[in-house]
């Protein structure tokens, strides 16, 4: 039995390292390139570890662009999207899970189909809509678009999550006279914290990733998010990839921090919410 255990451990690590090799190596290559001086990136064969590591790419990037601003914009948009989407989704998810109302199935199904709609195809109508609402060139417009695209999945997650929380505690709170809102805010939300947090990670990362609308709905440099800012540099730097990949490293770090903060909740939340449905 012991030998078998050892064999299994070896097998496990072998498989795990294979996966990681595929998943992590581009990130290592990204970091490595960003630390190379311009001359070294055009070396053949390419070097894995920079021979003359330098932060030159980072400092150039910092000087040339509004990078700090882009970073703050991304963080602001992603956090605000997360805050709004999580709140709205948990309210809706709770209603779906607890309250039998007419047309519940239909509405739930409608929200799921909304998930299927590729945002790119609605670029122009949404652009026109935002114009009519006066939300072009505002954070709010971008946040609204991001919330919309994160919502269907988020609602679904929260719905699944609340469905599997026993209802007795809330019932007790009701009986104690807490009322609907009171029950939700004081009892349900805290109980659903793991679900909320994994939902938050999902919303944050989807806003962090968003590109097409951030590109289309803004014309101001000072409102650009990181992906758009970085994309705009492609034309400027061409094949001088050390600059672009320095930007890539910078944009990945905040997401890593956010993820690391809430990581321990995510699996719990997903298990209860998304998958069981």
């Amino acid at each position: 039995m012991k030998r078998r255990r050892l064999l299994f451990t070896v097998f496990w690590w072998g498989a795990a390292l294979l996966f990681l090799a595929f998943l992590v190596f581009p990130v290592l290559w990204m970091i490595s390139t960003s630390l190379k001086p311009s001359g070294e990136i055009f070396q053949i064969p390419p070097t894995w570890v920079p021979e003359h590591p330098t932060l030159q790419a980072y400092s150039t990037l910092w000087q040339k662009g509004n990078f700090l601003r882009y970073l703050l914009n991304s963080i602001l948009v992603a956090l605000a999207t997360t805050g709004i989407a999580v709140l709205v989704a948990s309210m809706a998810g709770y209603a779906f899970a607890r309250l039998p109302f007419i047309g519940r199935k239909t509405v739930l199904f409608g929200i799921l189909t909304a998930q299927m709609i590729p945002g790119v195809l609605f670029l122009l109508p949404i652009f026109v809509l935002m114009k009519q609402l006066g939300l072009l060139n505002t954070y709010l417009g971008l946040i609204l678009a991001n919330v919309t695209f994160a919502l269907p999945f988020a609602i679904w997650m929260m719905y699944g999550f609340y469905k599997h929380i026993p209802a007795e505690i809330e019932e007790a709170a009701w009986v104690d006279g807490a009322g609907f809102g009171g029950t939700f805010f004081r009892v349900v939300l805290p109980m659903g914290m793991p679900g909320l947090l994994s939902c938050a990670i999902f919303c944050f990362l989807s806003a962090w990733d968003e590109f097409v609308f951030a590109l289309a709905l803004n014309t101001r440099d000072e409102l650009r998010t990181m992906p758009v800012g970085l994309f705009s540099f492609v034309g400027q730097f061409g094949i001088e990839w050390n600059y672009l990949l320095a930007g890539a490293v910078l944009v990945t770090i905040p997401a890593m921090v956010f993820f690391a903060l809430f990581q321990k909740y995510i699996l719990q939340g997903f298990a209860a919410g998304a998958v069981k449905g």
């Binding site: 996966f19 990681l20 998943l23 992590v24 581009p26 990130v27 290559w29 990204m30 390139t33 990362l205 962090w208 990733d209 590109f211 990181m226 992906p227 970085l230 994309f231 492609v234 990839w241 672009l244 990949l245 930007g247 890539a248 944009v251 990945t252 997401a255 890593m256 993820f259 690391a260 990581q263």
Partner: peptide, 21 residues
């Protein structure tokens, strides 16, 4: 933790990195 890394790289950025690869 390391397994999740690609999810944290925005897709536009990931595409740029891979273009270079």
């Amino acid at each position: 933790s390391f397994y999740m890394l690609p999810w944290l790289v925005p897709s536009v950025v990931a595409a740029l990195v891979w273009r270079w690869i």
